[in-house]
Design a protein around this nucleic acid. Structure first.
Length: 904
RNA sequence: GCGGAGGUAGCCAAGUCUGGUCAAAGGCGCUAGGCUUAGGACCUAGUUGGUUAGUCCAUUCGGCGGUUCAAAUCCGCCCUUCCGCACCA
């Protein structure tokens, strides 16, 4: 069979017969879709896994009598497409290489530079092409592209108006990594350095200071460990450095230049007064707001002006850098005399007790590890901070907090100091972040940002409650869902750039990307009507959507208002009410944390409960020959290339049986071989059927039993989306059983073999649809197997079939025994084989013995054919002392579960 | 750090919920033989070590310890790999 030829043939026939165009009818419906792929490149091997799984499930349901709707849309919302265009305009070679890998020509690339929509449409067509080649059973009349299709944008506007009505879209403030040059948040992909870095809040402890003239200043010490406040011995400023004096919320602060910019972006009222050299303050004293004690201000070379405020409090007992700073200073006679300090004045103060350490863990660690380099100090600092946070307890120097665990008291302490105006906070990136434009980023707190109020208790609880009744495949993933829902916070939902829908009430903003992939499934139910009738976006106002999706309003009136025919409105409403809710959604496991959760959230928020989604399936990633896919490895194989090489059925079969559950799939070309050879075996068997006769044989019952077991096992596996198990049963086990049957039965039974084949062909049809159509046709059927009836099994046959299995197992075991003996006796071509059935007294039931004798007498021809020699079955009871010793020995050692064997 | 999923013979991978029938399915690879004979495929057997006319013994399922007549499977501790943690799709 030429797979590719065959696939083209059947795809054309399906098209012609429109068997996948799905409209409401009397049957029960089943609604699913493939994941909505991003149209900035071609479909590749990674997509094929989730695509195929969805199609297989839709086909499985279709054969099980459902009116199965499989739909497909495309995703163009957000930055990526604009990014592609931008990079092409800058002649980015790696971008060009990627696009070429996906099959774009130089001419295409020139066109891409002109228009993002061209890019989207170009790749959409390519992907559609691959999907058709893969034989996905999609109702193509319903396709659309997000952000490009104006009608879809109207739908998103409706979504947001609904969410806002419910109070689920709110305004708030939020810290983001910010590039002040670009004036925008700097996401991971926009960074030269600092991928994965986030934001972290430093506490600022305000130390007060008064100079000789009575001017009051604040030294705002930025720290991650405000709980060590009681252990402060001094303040560090960087020597020989200009600090800035600035009015910050009506106080005069001494801070770094960087800090000024940061505070400016973090909702402080800031105005610059002037410069001051750090030397001006050294030796003078500032007041600790917790102890009211005065501590000296001293030079510390290690102070980093770019971090925090550039002003640091020193806790030498618990901070390695501080202890080294103190040591360095005391060693320097000139400075210590100048600033009048000695080892008493800056003596470490113990504030945290930590098991396994003495009073001053930082001192101990520095000394024992001889830490001197910055790297070493950073390492032990991180280690010590972690230990003290998790295991440390504040000691008696900490007044009211004495005896409390650091991990438990930290937040209270910060809260109290803030409340009495002695602390505030400054946000910092968790590591150095440099924007594409080469500017160093800091944290900005965005105001009046629009948020989806995912932390809303009512909303959250609705989601959790619904999750309880949803089916999840595999069930293991539930914990991941629950946990994510628990910590889900509000999510910024409007941005300034990218393709997408404008926020309906604030046109300066564009709705963020993920909201385009939350309830778009509802749009599939109406997109056919929109596409067929060229409905324009203006007519699809909120009133129309309310009518279709929420049954609100009067048909006549709405029709009049929007200018759409009543019949069209009714058609959309009927389609929606028939196909909704979505029954099954399959995605990669990486989408659980956002897409899939938001999918539930938005449905729960907007639609009546009966339209909330029914199930979610999740699968792993796709590796190629054991390695992760990556552009750098160049192992991202476009789907079209795979199909060209193997044909769609083998790609479908290989990928969908490569893994199940949350395991990652692994594409290996060579794995197609065993799959192909089994398909060919079945195909070849069809040709042999004609020469068979319809005589019952003694192993027919056994094969029939296997058939029912295979149907049952396969069906159950499909239900659970365990396609690997399904194929294991319906292809591997089935072929093995069939091979055994063909070997075992001297004259295979035509009727049974045909029935068996027909069932197997159907069982694998969701995964290898083209192949199955062809073989089905060859078996003499004029119908499409894709829409034929799923095989049924009979539990009754399975339940009473145990003894058949036992018998066959016994024959197989005896075959192995004979082989074994042959080898040991070194008789490659035996002239005669004698089998001994055990003596009567060893059988609990005499009937079993007779059954055994009959079994092997029936198998006589088979055994004779196997070994090409005479086979004799002997009853051990008839062996007497007159027989040869070997005979006597076998007669006595034979057991009911093991025949005695002599090979001549 | 928080959370999720894993670690099984050369590789991939079932089995773990519901302990025994597990020296542990299946596939790949490898070895021997067959078939054809120089194409791959296909068929049979083997693939922890020892031992044997088909038996039996020892050791094995990340590590250590425990429960049990019995553990890959249950319990505890430890080691280790992968994944997600948001304004990025």
């Amino acid at each position: 069979m030429d797979f590719k030829e065959n696939e083209k043939k059947w795809q054309a026939r399906w098209d012609e017969a429109r068997i996948f165009e799905t409209d409401p009818d009397k049957r029960k419906k089943f609604f699913t879709s493939l994941i909505i792929p991003y149209v900035n490149g071609n479909a590749h091997i990674g997509h094929s896994f989730t695509f195929t799984r969805s199609d297989v499930y839709a086909r499985f349901k279709r054969m099980n009598g459902y009116n199965s709707l499989l739909t497909q849309g495309f995703h163009a919302t957000g930055e990526p497409i604009l990014g592609v265009v931008e990079r092409l305009r800058q002649s980015d070679q790696s971008q060009i290489a990627t696009l070429k890998l996906y099959g774009a020509t130089d001419e295409d690339i020139e066109n891409f530079k002109k228009d993002p929509k061209y890019v989207a449409n170009y790749w959409m067509k390519k992907i559609v092409g691959s999907m058709k080649e893969m034989g996905y059973s999609i109702d193509w009349r319903r396709r659309f592209v997000t952000a490009i299709d104006p009608c879809f944008n109207s739908f998103i506007e409706w979504q947001y108006n609904k969410l806002k009505e419910k109070g689920y879209v709110v305004q708030g403030t939020h810290p983001v990594v910010w590039c002040s040059h670009d004036q925008s948040p700097t996401g991971d992909h926009d960074r030269l350095k600092g991928e994965g870095e986030g934001t972290i809040e430093y506490t600022i402890i305000k130390f007060s200071f008064e100079d000789e003239d009575g001017h009051k200043f604040i030294f705002p010490c930025a720290t991650l460990r405000p709980e060590t406040i009681y252990g402060v011995t001094n303040i560090w400023l960087k020597p020989e450095t200009e600090y800035i004096l600035a009015i910050v919320n009506n106080e005069t602060w001494v801070i770094s230049k960087d800090a000024l910019d940061k505070l400016n972006d973090q909702l402080f009222e800031v105005s610059e007064l002037g410069f001051v050299q750090s030397e001006e303050f050294f030796g003078k004293r500032a007041k600790n707001p917790s102890t009211e004690e005065e501590v000296p201000i001293l030079p510390g070379n290690f102070v980093e002006m770019g971090t925090g405020t550039g002003v640091v409090m020193s806790v030498p007992g618990h901070a390695p850098f501080d202890w080294v700073g103190i040591k360095t200073l005391l060693k320097n006679k000139e400075l210590s005399e100048k600033y009048k300090i000695d080892s008493n004045i800056v003596k470490p103060i113990s504030v945290i007790s930590l098991e396994g350490y003495g009073e001053f863990p930082a001192v101990e660690m520095v000394e024992s590890m001889k830490a001197d380099s910055k790297e070493k100090l950073e390492k032990i600092t991180a280690e010590l901070y972690k230990k003290e946070f998790h295991q440390g307890v504040l000691n008696n120097n900490c007044k009211t907090y004495a005896g409390q665990k650091v991990s438990e008291v930290k937040d209270h302490l910060i809260e109290r100091f803030r409340n009495i105006g002695r602390a505030t906070s400054i946000w910092e990136t968790t590591g150095l972040v440099v924007c594409r434009c080469n500017n160093k980023c800091h944290v900005k707190i965005l105001e009046n940002q629009w948020f989806l109020n995912y932390s809303n208790d009512r909303w959250k609880n609705d989601v959790k409650r619904h999750l309880e009744i949803m089916r999840l495949y595999p069930e293991d993933i539930r914990g991941q869902f629950l946990n994510t829902i628990d910590w889900l916070k509000d999510k910024a939902c409007a941005r300034k750039s990218g393709l997408g829908t404008k926020l309906p009430w604030d046109k300066d903003w564009i709705v963020e990307t993920l909201s385009d992939s939350t309830i778009y499934m509802a749009y599939y139910t109406i997109s056919k009507t929109i596409n067929d009738n060229n409905i324009i976006a203006d007519k699809l106002n909120d009133e129309v959507f309310d009518f279709i999706f929420l049954s609100k309003g009067d048909l006549k009136q709405i029709s009049k208002n929007c200018g759409l025919d009543e019949s069209l409105l009714k058609e959309m409403k009927e389609n929606f009410e028939y196909f909704y809710p979505m029954d099954f959604r399959n995605s990669g496991k990486d989408l659980v944390q956002h897409h899939l959760i938001f999918f539930i959230y938005h449905h729960v928020a907007i639609f009546p409960e009966k339209y909330w989604p029914r199930s979610i399936a999740v699968n792993g990633y796709v590796n190629v020959a054991g390695e992760k896919m990556s552009k750098s490895k160049g192992n991202i194989i476009p789907l079209s290339e795979l199909i060209e090489k193997h044909g769609a059925d083998l790609v479908r079969l290989n990928i969908s049986t490569s893994a199940e559950g949350m395991d990652d799939a692994d594409w290996r070309d060579e794995n197609t071989n065993p799959l192909k050879s089994r398909l060919m075996y079945l195909n070849d068997l069809v040709d042999k059927i004609e020469r068979m006769e319809s005589n019952k044989t003694n192993v027919d019952n056994w094969l029939e039993l296997q058939m029912h077991k295979i149907i049952k096992e396969t069906t159950t596996a499909y239900e659970e989306t365990k396609f690997r198990s399904a194929i294991n049963a319906s292809l591997f086990n089935a072929v093995n059983d069939m091979k055994w049957y063909m070997r075992r039965s001297i004259t295979p039974n035509k009727t049974l073999v045909k029935e068996f084949l027909e069932n197997i062909i159907k069982l694998i049809a969701p995964i290898t649809p083209h192949y199955s159509e062809e073989v089905w046709n060859k078996l003499g059927h004029k119908t499409f197997v894709s829409i034929d009836k799923w095989p049924q099994y009979k539990d009754a046959i399975i339940l009473k079939g145990d003894h058949l299995d036992k018998d066959e197992l016994f024959v197989k075991k005896t075959l192995e025994d004979i082989e074994h003996v042959k080898k040991l006796a070194k008789r490659q071509k035996p002239s005669k084989i004698i089998l001994f059935v055990a003596k009567s007294d060893k059988f609990a039931d005499k009937k079993d013995k007779h059954h055994q004798i009959r079994l092997f007498e029936e198998a006589h021809l088979f055994l004779k054919k196997e070994y090409g020699c005479d086979i004799e079955v002997l009853d051990s009871d008839i062996i007497t002392s007159h027989n040869e010793p070997l005979y006597q020995n076998k007669a006595t050692t034979s057991k009911p579960e093991k025949l005695g064997v002599i090979v001549f």
